[in-house]
Design a binder for these strands. Structure first.
Lengths: 155, 155
DNA sequence: TATTGTTATACTCTATAACTATA
DNA sequence: TATAGTTATAGAGTATAACAATA
């Protein structure tokens, strides 16, 4: 209908292409750790960042994972109830506390890592090493330009 | 904690990077047409594909937008109630029907196009023409490799 | 029997607002 | 008063299952 009178083709529209690619990857990987370990994406992210960084406040977890404080709070509560995360007093600020992985949490993380890396490798299988680096770089630059006021995420 | 004993860094993890970039772009653009025209992402996609392709069955809309049939059905119902989309008998298959834009729908589309193109341009502002093409190409290849069994989307 | 489309229901992620406890 | 975190609630996207109408 408007085939010629518009410069917008959904199939080449960046937000659409990004969304389709992101969801294709996210769905596959989320399915993997959901089925094997009953983890949601938000829970996986909190687990991953605590494994990398050690003790963090919920606030810092949110900054590093781009999750809002509500999502961090709920994910942490689930992980704590499952014995994956433990909480500790924060000597620097009584309003806050510190989160860290338990032994169980570390073990779980070590089990999941190879699974998600395998999924990532499958998604990147057709790209050369240089192309992977470039994709990473391009995505970061797009993100910087787009940077909306809100935080949200997946994957 | 596991800072050195794991090859997984969330910040360089493709599913995470893709998700953050996709959501940064999607949030900004969705906010634009939501505020101005009270359209949801699913509704925008149906509107856009009908503007491009003319009369389509809901089934075909789903294929072209990567939406499942339930999402298409609900988005189309909202658009029809708002006078943006009209339905017609499908002479080829009595189980189905054809969707197309009304005059109102076409006018709405023409109003939204410059808005979303401006958002896209803002997101791509720091990329050269070649880099934009490469990003499009890389995303398509990632999508092909990742291609999960399910369909889902945003943007 | 299989397929198209709709409806009911539920799950996940995200967001606003109200609340507490501390700074 | 401002901030860290929790809880209640709601909006949005997606999924399964059950269903009606047609092939």
């Amino acid at each position: 209908m408007n085939q010629d009178k518009t410069p917008l083709r959904l199939d080449d529209f960046l937000p659409y292409r990004l969304s389709v690619a992101s969801n294709a990857v996210s769905n596959k990987i989320a399915e993997a750790y959901r089925k094997k370990h009953r983890l949601k994406v938000t829970e996986w992210r909190v687990l991953a960042i605590l494994a990398e960084r050690g003790r963090l406040t919920p606030n810092r977890v949110g900054e590093l994972t781009r999750m809002d404080k509500i999502s961090v709070s709920r994910a942490a509560a689930v992980l704590e109830a499952r014995g994956i995360v433990s909480t500790h007093a924060n000597p620097a600020d009584g309003r806050s506390h510190l989160l860290s992985l338990t032994e169980t949490g570390n073990t779980l993380y070590q089990q999941i890592v190879p699974v998600v890396l395998e999924c990532e490798e499958a998604a990147l299988a057709q790209l050369t090493v240089d192309e992977r680096k470039q994709l990473n770089d391009l995505l970061r630059r797009v993100e910087q330009s787009a940077q909306s006021s809100t935080h949200s995420e997946r994957g």
